[in-house]
Design a protein around this nucleic acid. Structure first.
Lengths: 128, 128
DNA sequence: TGCATATATGAACACATGCTCATATATGCA
DNA sequence: TGCATATATGAGCATGTGTTCATATATGCA
């Protein structure tokens, strides 16, 4: 639903008051906005993208992830803590080792959709 | 495709060398990872989420956005510059004013999918 | 029990980020 | 042309973020 602009003075709104309040009421609520931004923020880091991508394909322990991606085990552990906190990843203890897997199906979907966006961006001219 | 772990010594890998290289080759490439993280990073801020959400519903000029969302025009302008740079948003000049719209359909899809994730998170116990 | 190893955690530090404030640019109109 | 207004931009600052390094915890095994 597109609301057309009607007036031309920026002292107040360019939109009619009625349209403004209509628009305002359709906007995402605060909690949704916060949760959405928080979700995207977690995905907005190359290290976490790599970890989640790897875990979407195999159950891996901390040191495997570290080796596979060329990261320190501490760095991986810190990131896993964050991802655990957001329930994106789930640990499974087996002896001394702790194996992690992806614990949220939406991540794969978001990655897929994000990649479509990225690829169209390449197709339509502008690179990274 | 899930690769099962096989060995138990973290000196090297817990996975067989063959499985490791197989896994390695299925991982997202560097440029994809970078572009993906960059995309999510832009979406990982409440101000930008709000702006993009508003622009997905109406074409708005800078000061309308500022008023609608309770932000300074400067802050909005800075964010729009970023969003413009990433081609998520497109300006249209009309006299002194510049109207912005969403210039990327994937954003709406990503928001939708992100919200599904968020809502399931609420349903399954843990809040924000 | 005591040692080795896998993971977790805390502090510290370098760097990024988003805002504000001041100023520049651009358009419309008298 | 000159002034008012809409937007853009740059500098500066407070805050946030991701890593490393040192250390803690936990498990397996001799």
């Amino acid at each position: 639903m597109i609301v057309k602009t009607l007036e031309d003075s920026c002292d107040v709104f360019h939109l009619e008051a009625a349209k403004v309040s209509a628009l305002k009421s359709t906007l995402l609520g605060d909690s949704s906005v916060v949760a959405l931004a928080e979700t995207f923020k977690v995905l907005g880091d190359t290290t976490r993208v790599r970890i989640l991508d790897a875990l979407s394909r195999a159950e891996l322990c901390v040191c495997d992830i570290a080796r596979l991606l060329g990261l320190s085990e501490s760095a991986v552990s810190h990131q896993l803590r964050l991802l655990r906190g957001m329930r994106l990843v789930r640990p499974r203890r087996e002896g001394r080792m702790i194996y992690y897997t992806l614990d949220d199906q939406h991540i794969v979907g978001l990655f897929k959709q994000g990649l479509e966006h990225v690829q169209e961006r390449f197709r339509t001219g502008r690179g990274v």
